[in-house]
């Protein structure tokens, strides 16, 4: 994978994950007039005061820092919705609840730059933190259920969570694979090893290899 800080353990740094999360679209309400912006990813705008428009998160943050817009917090980032999700996550044996793929990063950027645009900001923030902790625990339990090399299915895990467990899970699965493999071909190896000495006895003694 290109762009990783440390390709050796195949881990994106959280900053890199955040950078990728900044491509998500958010809704802003501009307070200035501006022509449409033409990017490789698409055209955004035009910007008219009080007319909401969709822009990538990074652009929204840049505009916000200059005081040119206000955020419309996304639907899922409301106290009601988050309370529901948190309760569903806390159910024992429950699956991961559907959340935006980069919810951790979006929430973080919004809390950093758009405090005044989020209603019940402190409540929302602590809910997001709780949800993240519960999901991390759940993820850990799921990792514990690895039983050798089988397909592992986990739905709705977000980008940051995947990135957190990636090096660990990869190495663990590699180790499982290594230990499972010999068991699978035990029979095959038995025949091979019993055959080996016989062949060796028939042939004349091999001289040591010259080095």
């Amino acid at each position: 994978m290109a762009g990783q800080t440390d390709p050796h353990i195949s881990l994106f740094s959280p900053e890199e994950v955040e950078f990728m999360g900044e491509d998500e679209l958010v809704e802003i309400v501009p307070n200035m007039n501006m022509e449409p912006l033409n990017f490789i990813a698409g055209d955004f705008g035009r910007f008219v005061p009080q007319i909401p428009t969709q822009v990538p998160l990074w652009l929204a943050v840049a505009l916000k820092r200059r005081g040119k817009c206000t955020f419309r917090p996304p639907q899922w980032l409301s106290v009601d919705n988050l309370t529901q999700i948190l309760e569903a996550e806390r159910e024992p044996q429950s699956k991961f609840q559907p959340l935006p793929f980069s919810y951790v990063e979006i929430a973080r950027l919004l809390f950093d730059h758009a405090r005044d645009d989020i209603p019940d900001m402190y409540m929302v923030r602590s809910l997001v933190e709780d949800i993240r902790d519960v999901r991390l625990h759940k993820l850990e339990n799921n990792l514990g259920s690895f039983q050798g090399t089988s397909a592992v299915k986990m739905d709705n895990v977000s980008a940051m969570e995947v990135n957190l467990v990636r090096p660990f899970a990869r190495r663990a699965l590699e180790a499982f694979y290594k230990h499972d493999k010999p068991e699978a071909d035990t029979a095959d190896r038995d025949t091979r090893s019993s055959r080996q000495p016989r062949e060796a006895n028939n042939e004349p003694r091999r001289p040591l290899r010259q080095r």
Partner: peptide, 24 residues
């Protein structure tokens, strides 16, 4: 011939008990 099974069971148990607790 039992060494393979010894290794894989040891790793499975140790993995489950010890290593998956790392994150929290």
């Amino acid at each position: 011939r039992t060494i393979g099974i010894l290794l894989s069971t040891a790793f499975k148990i140790r993995y489950k008990e010890r290593l998956t607790k790392v994150f929290t």
